[in-house]
């Protein structure tokens, strides 16, 4: 159990970190970060100033990231609990 939860954590923690790092990217905004013009979700450029938004994550990618992040945290908790010195 000790090693299994550690390996699961090691496999899934990149999802957690990517999930954290993608929080607040410019595509998630409802308005252009530069000029404040309202934008639609799928727009790649601001119509007014031409600001290029980060690429929107395709399809279920955000949910895969979120699932991986959850798995990472749970497996880390399992690994910490399995340590004999705790």
């Amino acid at each position: 159990m000790n090693l299994v939860s550690l390996v699961w954590f090691l496999l899934s923690c990149p999802f957690l970190f990517l999930f954290l790092l993608r929080l607040g990217n410019s595509n998630g905004h409802v308005e252009c970060p530069f000029c404040g013009t309202k934008k639609k979700r799928d727009e790649m450029n601001c119509k007014k100033c031409g600001f290029e938004f980060l690429e929107p994550p395709p399809g279920p990618f955000p949910w895969i990231l979120a699932g991986g992040a959850l798995l990472s945290i749970l497996s880390l908790v399992a690994w910490i609990e399995s340590q004999q010195y705790l």
Binding site: P14, L21, S26, C49, F51, L54
Partner: peptide, 26 residues
């Protein structure tokens, strides 16, 4: 606008660098 754009792109590269650093360390 250009500098605002570069700052925004830097966040994307930070995410990429952080992700790669984690994967390589793992």
């Amino acid at each position: 606008r250009e500098y605002c754009q570069i700052s925004d792109n830097a966040r994307g590269y930070a995410a990429a660098g952080g992700g790669m650093a984690v994967i390589l360390s793992l």
